[in-house]
Amino acid sequence: MSRALIIDGYELFRISLREILSATGQFDKIDEVASSGDFISAVTNDAPATLAVIHPCSIGLNESECLRLFRRVMPDAHIVVFRDKDTAETPTPPDKNITILPRDANSTDVRDAALGAYSRTGKQMGTAAPLSKYKGMGRWDQRSATEHLSKRQREIMAMVAEGMANKEIAHRIGIAEGTVKAHIHAVFRALGVNNRTQAVVRYGSALRHSGY
């Protein structure tokens, strides 16, 4: 079984990464880790992972410590590390099974790293999702995308990322359901997307670019 492990302290990022990895069709199971405590448990107690996608800083861990632990318990796993631009880390030792990506890497970069990791395990590659699936989900004016969203729209996007329906969002923040719908469609226009899933993926990528 091919298992992918997403280790990131930010829910929107985990959602966007899950969407990208799921679209490849190469992983039987995708698990998420949101804290340092869960990280230790997932690495030491669960089944070995084919791929681990890690942003150590977001769960309060040192990159080198994360990699050392992974190498002890999952020596064959491929690791994709998201590194913040302002993070001063000791250079990662040469390792063909470690890929370093900037925190603001676009969806195609992440997809390619995941597929490269899968192929290096020696497994038979299936049919990957075509790049057309990612059309419009790569680089764009990410800073502008988030700056053009109001505080209310960002608040609503956080709840959309949690899987809440418009009615639930309206009840939580005390506005009409129609107003929620209008805000969401405004977000679609600002982000250049057509549905909620694309909005969550793109908004998560924009937040990565902004360094949140």
Rank of each mutant, 00 (worst) to 15 (best):
Y118S: 04
D95T: 01
A88P: 00
V73T: 09
E89L: 03
Q124G: 01
L69G: 00
D141R: 14
I98C: 01
P130I: 08
K96N: 03
F82S: 01
R103W: 07
S132C: 06
T108G: 00
S119C: 03
T127D: 11
M125S: 04
H78D: 08
A129Y: 09
T99L: 02
G116T: 02
E63G: 01
S144L: 14
P75V: 08
S132P: 06
M74N: 08
D112G: 04
Q153A: 15
K133N: 13
R139P: 08
G60E: 05
K133M: 12
N106Q: 10
L101C: 06
M125G: 04
L131D: 07
D84L: 09
R103A: 11
H78M: 07
C66Q: 05
T127F: 11
R72W: 10
A88W: 03
P130F: 09
L69R: 09
G122Y: 12
D141T: 05
A145M: 15
S144D: 14
D84S: 10
I100S: 03
A117I: 01
T127A: 11
L67P: 02
A128R: 13
A128I: 12
D86N: 07
P130E: 10
F70H: 06
Q153F: 14
R68H: 08
L149S: 15
P102Y: 07
V80L: 09
Q153C: 14
W140S: 13
G136Y: 11
K123S: 11
A129V: 15
M137W: 09
H148D: 15
F82T: 00
A114N: 08
G122Q: 06
G138A: 13
L115K: 05
I156S: 15
A145I: 13
R120V: 11
R111D: 06
N106Y: 13
G116I: 07
K135V: 06
A114K: 07
R152Y: 10
N106K: 11
S144H: 12
R68D: 11
R120I: 08
G60M: 07
V110D: 04
G116E: 02
K96M: 03
G116Q: 00
Q153S: 15
T121F: 04
R154S: 15
S64V: 10
K123Q: 12
Y134G: 03
L131C: 02
K133I: 09
D112C: 06
G138H: 12
N106W: 13
A128Q: 11
L131R: 11
F70P: 02
S150L: 13
G60S: 02
K123E: 13
H78W: 10
E63D: 00
I156K: 15
V160A: 14
A145P: 14
G126K: 10
D84A: 10
R139G: 02
P102A: 08
S150D: 09
S132Q: 12
V81C: 05
A88Q: 05
P130L: 05
A77K: 00
R111Y: 10
M157C: 12
D84C: 04
Q153D: 14
V81P: 02
S119K: 13
N106T: 05
A114I: 10
M125A: 07
T127L: 11
M74W: 13
G60C: 01
G126D: 02
D86H: 06
R139N: 12
G138K: 11
E63F: 00
Y134L: 12
Y134A: 01
E63S: 01
L67Y: 04
C66Y: 07
D141C: 03
S119M: 10
S107P: 04
N62H: 01
N97S: 09
I59F: 05
